[in-house]
Design a protein around this nucleic acid. Structure first.
Lengths: 158, 158
DNA sequence: GTCGCTGCAAAGTCTTTGCAGAGAG
DNA sequence: CTCTCTGCAAAGACTTTGCAGCGAC
C-alpha cells in the first residue's frame, strides 16, 4: 500500500489573492473594508499556529500597537470570517476555540495533549472513506473534522 | 472491498457492571459513593443522547425532584467521570460540551448540522489508518475523534 | 467521628451586545 | 453624508470555587 499520508502545512494561496477575495466578500455583503479587518486577516495568514481569539488579540496589540484593537472586534471579525468559510474553528479539550485560515487545502489535525502543539495532515484513504460512510448512513456530507490526540516526539522524550 | 462500516449505538455493558466499576473507581481513590453520583451515572446510562451538563441537570430535576441536585455537582461529577475515562466529551460548533458514557465501544460521530442529531459509527479501515498516521508523524496516539457533518435523511426531505 | 460531598451563591472565564463617536464608501 | 465599524464597558452564557452543613464509611 503506497503511503498517502502527508504532513501538510504550507500555504496554498497568495496573500494578495486572499485579500482580494476578502474585499470581494465584503463588497458583496455591503460591508466595509477596515484596517482592523485587514490586520486580522493578515495575522491569520502569517501565523503558522492555530490562534485563539485572545492570542490573536495579543499578537495585534504587539505588532500594531497603534490600532488599539478591541477584543470585541476580533470576535466579530472571526465570526464573520467563519460564517463566510474563510476561517475554520477547532474546538477541543477545555475551553475556547482556535481559528485557522480556511484558505489552505483541507487537512486534519493531530494534537499533542501535553504541549498543545498541532500538526496538520491529510490522508486520502480516510477522506474517501468518510464520504462513503456518510452516504451509507443516509447523510449528505458537508464537512468533517478529525483529530488524533497523542504525545508528540518532543514530549515523549521528557 | 467488504463493508466494514457499522451503524453503532447499542450499549455493551450491563448497568450493574458499570455501577460496580464506578464504585470500585471511587473506592480506589478514597472517594465516596453518593446518591447524586449514582443518579448522574444512571441518567447517562439510560440516555441515548449526548447530554450537555445543563440537559443532564434538567433531566435529574424532572426525574428525581427530591434530590434538588445542584448544577455544580453535575459539573464536578462529569469532570470526575471524564478524568477517569468513564465518560467522553464532545465539543463542537458553538459553545458547550456534550457528554456520553464511555462504556460503549469506541465509535465516531456523524452530526446533522440542521437538527443536531448525532449518529454513531465505527469504521475499521479508518481506525487502522489513524494509528498508522500517528506513528508516521512521530506521535504516540492516545485517542482520537472524528466527526462528519452533513444533513441527515430526515432533514434532506425538508 | 472523620473527611469528603453537596447545594448555594459568588466568582471566574470566555463571548456577545449596546452605544456613541469614528471612518469607509 | 450615510450607514457600518470600532472600542469600551456592561451584560450574558457557561463553568468553577468557597463555604458551612450534611452524609458516607
Amino acid at each position: 500500500m503506497p503511503n498517502k499520508t502527508t504532513d501538510f502545512s504550507e500555504r496554498t494561496i497568495e496573500y494578495g489573492t486572499l485579500l482580494a477575495d476578502f474585499k470581494e466578500l465584503l463588497k458583496r455583503n455591503g460591508l466595509k473594508f477596515t484596517i482592523q479587518r485587514e490586520v486580522i486577516l493578515e495575522m491569520l495568514y502569517n501565523s503558522d499556529e492555530h490562534l485563539t481569539p485572545e492570542a490573536l488579540h495579543q499578537l495585534i496589540i504587539h505588532k500594531r500597537p497603534e490600532l488599539k484593537a478591541g477584543i470585541a472586534t476580533i470576535y466579530r471579525t472571526l465570526s464573520l470570517l467563519e460564517d463566510s468559510d474563510m476561517v475554520t474553528s477547532l474546538s477541543f479539550g477545555a475551553q475556547g476555540k482556535k481559528y485557522e485560515l480556511g484558505a489552505k487545502d483541507h487537512h486534519d489535525h493531530i494534537i499533542c495533549t501535553e504541549c498543545g502543539e498541532i500538526t496538520e495532515f491529510v490522508d486520502e484513504e480516510i477522506e474517501t472513506r468518510q464520504q462513503l460512510i456518510a452516504t451509507e448512513l443516509g447523510f449528505k456530507m458537508s464537512d468533517h473534522s478529525m483529530q488524533i490526540y497523542g504525545t508528540c516526539k518532543t514530549c515523549q522524550k521528557k
